[in-house]
């Protein structure tokens, strides 16, 4: 089914996708002419496939559950923010805060993302085929961030338990983020993630792993002058 944003209001398009008639078998949708609109495909809860043809604005596929959304273009701030499950695949670049606070599911970005990718992520897997901007995985709590390109300044600042894998260069690590050993368990996990994103040209051994040194977890009296 085709939903053309030149002919339909955004609310109508999102309403159609959010309140699917379950008796119908049509679970494949194409959204045309997004022209940078915000919140396209936000709040989907059903297992359906949506392809958006063009560039979209902020919070695309935010709060997603179960749906598989593909964007044939670039996305603005907060793609897949707070998503719970399903997949969001961006074929272009993503702006800042991609996958912010997301609890689950998979976000794949074929291009680059700008700053704060995966900020406060809580269980999502984010796979970026290009590079990520500064302060990515800031206060990230759980899940995996895979970066095939480079990472900007202050990667993983104030990190909790997210695993970060970067293939290229890291400009600098944030507070409490350290490089960690890539053991068998992590190699296997990363291989699975790369397979999910259909990445064949890189292997897990090409990546370095970063995580929390867990020094900021508890109040430390020796650091009192720094607070």
């Amino acid at each position: 089914m085709i939903l053309d944003l030149k002919k339909l209001e955004l609310r109508k398009v999102n309403d159609t996708l959010q309140n699917l008639e379950r008796k119908k078998n049509d679970r494949s949708f194409t959204v045309l002419n997004p022209e940078g609109s915000h919140a396209v495909c936000a709040g989907l809860t059903d297992d359906l496939d949506v392809t958006i043809k063009g560039h979209v604005g902020y919070y695309c596929a935010g709060m997603n559950q179960n749906a598989h959304v593909t964007v044939e273009g670039n996305v603005g701030t907060g793609v897949g923010e707070n998503m719970m499950s399903g997949t969001v695949h961006v074929k272009g670049n993503a702006s800042q805060s991609a996958g912010a606070t997301a609890h689950g599911g998979l976000l794949i970005v074929d291009g680059d993302t700008s700053s704060r990718c995966g900020i406060s992520m809580k269980g999502i897997d984010i796979i970026v085929k290009g590079s990520v901007g500064h302060m990515s995985a800031f206060m990230a709590q759980s899940g995996n961030l895979v970066v095939c390109g480079n990472a900007g300044e202050a990667l993983g600042d104030s990190l909790y338990e997210t695993d970060i894998y970067v293939r290229g260069k890291v400009r600098s690590l944030g507070a409490d983020c350290v490089e960690k050993k890539m053991d068998n368990k992590h190699t296997k996990k990363l291989d699975k993630l790369l397979k999910k994103a259909n990445i064949k040209n890189f292997k897990a051994r090409d990546f370095k792993r970063y995580g929390s040194s867990r020094k900021l977890y508890n109040f430390n009296i020796d650091n009192v002058s720094n607070y």
Partner: peptide
């Protein structure tokens, strides 16, 4: 925001 430029000629072929 990108939506400001969505009406420009050939913007979908532009380097963004």
């Amino acid at each position: 925001e990108f939506q400001a430029m969505a009406h420009l000629p050939n913007v979908n072929q532009a380097k963004i």
